[in-house]
């Protein structure tokens, strides 16, 4: 039972390198549309992330969850707007 590849990465845009503009953490990201985002972190990127390091556990049994890095989110949006991260043309809201 080995994990198989996600065919969407072959048929649509692949995971592409993106660097966080705040801390330089290097991740791979993908946008299937302007609203969809996939982010593959490495252990090193997690260590580098400033927001991650500054985060404190929240309340509740799932309080340890780090939901997202805002700086990275903005960096990915910028990369998409600048054309560094491809977003499919037909991925409008229509």
């Amino acid at each position: 039972m080995t994990a198989r590849p996600d065919e969407r990465l072959l048929d649509g845009p692949p995971m592409s390198p993106v660097r966080c503009r705040a801390c330089g953490a290097a991740v791979r990201a993908r946008k299937a549309s302007w609203q969809q985002t996939s982010i593959q972190w490495s252990a090193e990127a997690v260590e580098t992330c400033l927001e991650r390091r500054a985060s404190v556990p929240g309340d509740g049994p799932n309080g340890d969850l780090f939901p997202a890095c805002e700086a990275l989110r903005e960096s990915i949006v910028r990369a998409a707007l600048d054309g560094e991260l491809p977003v499919p043309d037909d991925a409008g809201d229509g």
């Binding site: 039972m1 080995t2 994990a3 299937a32 549309s33 302007w34 609203q35 969809q36 985002t37 996939s38 982010i39 593959q40 972190w41 490495s42 252990a43 990127a45 997690v46 997202a68 991925a91 809201d93």
Partner: peptide
């Protein structure tokens, strides 16, 4: 898959952080 292989065989990609936000439009 990490729970079905020996502890020594847990590969980085099984445990590395991955985020997926769906476009619900």
């Amino acid at each position: 898959e990490q729970f079905y292989v020996d502890a020594a065989d847990v590969a980085p990609e099984m445990v590395e952080r991955f985020e997926f936000e769906l476009d619900t439009t």
